[in-house]
């Protein structure tokens, strides 16, 4: 044994050091950020609504009393006790459609970002880690993709599909958002690979795959999380835009964008039909953006200290 008494002493002292981790610390600082907490609150409510939509919605969002039962008097009803936000042209309950619309928006946001993550992390980390010609080629693609205006590009992709639908929206928006993510991952990886612990892993004999998955990517999670949070908001907006234009979700889906589209004809006579879905989009996107901005402040080391 070569353990010196003084060394033991040293060990005991740090026993008192407060348990601390980066995520806990981030959470502590996030809690102090009022706007971020409002954003988080809104986001949680939206998620809650999406999950429990069948329990919360007073009516079936697809059921049209006008078409199916010929109750023409239920068309375009103003707010009432049984239809708190009124009904649309087909007599469907607007509140129920907005509640179910939450599901569509969130799913679009999440799946789009998953696609973007899969492509973005893979290409971004490969480009950043290997550098050289691999990086040149991938960076070239990233730049080409980034050169197109976001929504225009999505519209162009949607135009390629014969019959647009929500699945095509996932794909189109995923393809449009990955380059931004890839660029961020690439930059992170490029600076991370100079870290001494990466070299240490190499000196231990670790293979590239292990270095990437165990050492590189876990250390660039923070900016990825921020980008994805803001990306979900962007995707929700974009889906609403595409659906509004009629090349996204198709009727009778209770997509918010589609509802805006349907309300367009009544903009002057009955603006309520556009207000409510518009408000739903605004609140959801605002919540995600506030939360994402707060996360950025807390997680981005360049903003710290």
């Amino acid at each position: 044994m070569n353990v010196e008494p003084e060394v033991r002493q040293e060990s005991i002292e740090t026993e008192e050091v407060e348990k601390y981790s980066q995520w806990k610390d981030a959470w502590r600082r996030l809690r102090k950020n009022k706007m971020a907490m409002i954003g988080l609150g809104i986001t949680l409510v939206v998620i809650f609504v999406a999950i429990f939509a069948p329990l919360l919605a007073p009516h079936d969002p697809y059921y049209s009393p006008v078409m199916e039962d010929g109750q023409a008097e239920l068309s375009m009803q103003g707010p009432s006790l049984s239809y708190p936000l009124g009904t649309d042209r087909l007599g469907r309950d607007i509140l129920s459609r907005i509640i179910y619309g939450t599901r569509i928006s969130l799913i679009v946001g999440v799946i789009t970002q998953l696609i973007a993550l899969a492509i973005g992390i893979t290409l971004g980390s490969v480009a950043g880690y290997y550098g050289g010609i691999v990086d040149d080629v991938i960076s070239y693609f990233i730049n080409v993709f980034l050169a197109f205006p976001f929504l225009l590009f999505a519209i162009a992709i949607m135009a390629v599909f014969q019959d647009p639908g929500i699945e095509q929206v996932f794909l189109a928006l995923g393809l449009v958002t990955w380059p931004g993510l890839a660029r961020i991952v690439r930059g992170e990886v490029m600076s991370l690979k100079e870290e001494e612990y990466i070299e240490a892993a190499r000196s231990l004999g670790a293979k590239d795959f292990r270095i990437m998955t165990k050492h590189v990517i876990p250390n660039c999670l923070a900016p990825i999380i921020v980008t994805v949070t803001l990306g979900v908001a962007g995707a929700i907006l974009a889906e609403a835009g595409l659906s509004f234009l009629g090349i996204g979700a198709q009727p009778p889906m209770p997509s918010w964008g589609l509802m805006l589209n349907a309300g367009r004809d009544y903009l002057r006579s009955d603006p309520r039909m556009m207000w409510f879905p518009g408000l739903a989009i605004m609140i959801t996107v605002l919540g995600l953006n506030l939360f994402g901005d707060g996360l950025r402040d807390v997680l981005d080391p360049k903003m710290r200290d």
């Binding site: 008494p5 003084e6 060394v7 002493q9 040293e10 002292e13 008192e16 050091v17």
Partner: peptide, 12 residues
Amino acid sequence: EPIKGIVPDPFS
């Protein structure tokens, strides 16, 4: 002949 232990953190 080192000094034993380490400089404590500012709170301890």
